[in-house]
Structures are given as structure tokens and as C-alpha cells.
Simulated scan of single mutants.
Amino acid sequence: MLKKISATALAAAAIAMTFTGAAHAETNPKCSSGVTQIGSTKYLKHGSETVASLKQFKGCNKNWAYVYIWDAWKAKHPSNHIRAGIWTRTSDGAVDYAGHDGTKQELWSYGANTLNVCTYAAGNVFGSGYSASGSTDERC
């Protein structure tokens, strides 16, 4: 009986560890009425490891980029550089951009007045010896 309980406890722990690195529910501190994700989530990777999730949101009459560093990566890399921005097809650079260097785990962009054009979120997490970047699908 003891072996059965131990095996069950180990299985439960393994399942819990599998989901530890996933992103949590997002709350935008710059948009108190709430935001809605548009498009799919992009996973920023370094090799085969997932570093962060990148998402695009709409709310408060703006588009927002959001980067969340996964717990498993953050545990190994406590200090990171994070960048998040909203881009359009015709922009030469980010329409809206935010960055942070240090120990934050998540970053919201400032918010772009681009609900009337096609946009995508771009993000980057980097540090000593690694960089993970990407962009979401375009949403119109």
C-alpha cells in the first residue's frame, strides 16, 4: 500500500512540475477595464526550452504587447532584459514599445492607438549567452 501511495504522490508531483512554467492569467495595470487576447500565443524559445510567452491584447481603445517569462526559465535566469512592442505592416519600427532590465517576470507595452490597422506583437527576452525573440500572428 505504501508503494502505491508513493507512486501516486510522485505522479502528482510530476504533473504539477509540468505545468509550473506556464503563463498565468494576465492583468494589465494600464487598462483597468480589462483586455482581451487577440490572436494566438507565441512561445519564445532558446533551443528547445521555452523562455516566455508573447501575446497581443486589445482593450482601452489600444493594442498591447505582453511578455511573461516562464517560472522554470526565471528560476535559472533571475535577471533578464525584456522588450515588448506593437508593430504594423507599414511602420519602420515599433509603434509602441516598452523595455525593462532587471528582475521583472512580465512586461506590458505602453499601448498603441492602432485598433484601426493590422498589428502584431513582437517581444524579446535576453541575457548573458541567450536571446529568445519572436512575433505573434498579425491581427486586423
Results as ranks from 00 to 15, higher is better:
Ile38Pro: 00
Asn28Gly: 08
Pro29Phe: 10
Thr27Asn: 13
Val51Asn: 00
Tyr43Gly: 03
Lys58Tyr: 03
Ser40Asn: 13
Lys45Asp: 06
Ser40Asp: 11
Tyr43Cys: 03
Lys55Thr: 09
Phe57Trp: 01
Ser40Gly: 11
Gly34Leu: 02
Ser48Gly: 12
Lys45His: 07
Thr50Ile: 00
Ser53Lys: 01
Leu54Thr: 03
Leu54Val: 01
Thr50Glu: 08
Gln37Leu: 05
Lys45Arg: 08
Gln56Arg: 11
Glu49Phe: 00
Val51Thr: 12
Lys30Tyr: 11
Ala52Glu: 00
Lys30Asp: 04
Ser53Gln: 02
Ile38Leu: 11
Tyr43Asp: 05
Phe57His: 09
Glu26Lys: 07
Ser32Asn: 06
Lys30Met: 13
Lys45Tyr: 01
Thr27Glu: 14
Ser40Cys: 02
Phe57Glu: 01
Pro29Asn: 08
Ser33Phe: 01
Thr41Gln: 12
Ser32Leu: 09
Ile38Tyr: 15
Ser40Leu: 07
Glu49Trp: 03
Val35Ala: 07
Glu49Ala: 15
Glu49Met: 13
Ile38Asp: 06
Gln37Ser: 07
Ser32Gln: 11
His46Ile: 01
His46Gly: 06
Lys42Met: 09
Ser32Asp: 13
Gly34Val: 04
Thr41Cys: 07
Ser33Lys: 03
Ser40Tyr: 04
Lys30Ala: 15
Lys45Ile: 04
Val35Trp: 09
Val51Pro: 03
Leu54Glu: 02
Leu54Pro: 00
Lys58Arg: 12
Gly47Phe: 01
